[in-house]
Amino acid sequence: MCSLEVPDITQSIIERVNDPELTAWLVNVGEDFGTAYSFIDTLEVRGLPILLDEDQTYYRPYAMEVPGYAPFPLQVVIDRKGEIVYLSKQYDVDAAVAAIEAALAED
């Protein structure tokens, strides 16, 4: 799942939205720098910061609370006020893009 989708996120979501007011991060869950880097290195994922949530501080609450969601890649859209406006149930490019664009359209 991830080897296909991680590089696709850049192209299908971020470049499609192409808005300077969008910040996008790829957050690795539960792995160390070496593991995350070698994976990204293999796929040559350029242009997006890769964050390391090694202790699952941010990921775990979703895994605990959100039922029926594909565990990875989990996508979250947070609006300008810091509220969650989108959580992926599965990898769905159109739904993610729509959520981002709706959030960008709000003041």
Binding site: N28, V76, I78
Partner: peptide
């Protein structure tokens, strides 16, 4: 490695994709 803080992006829309290798 460098620090990333969502607080530095106040007022922007934030997209997170959690993944594993």
């Amino acid at each position: 490695l460098q620090p990333y803080n969502s607080g530095d992006h106040a007022g922007e829309v934030l997209f997170l994709a959690y993944w594993t290798s």
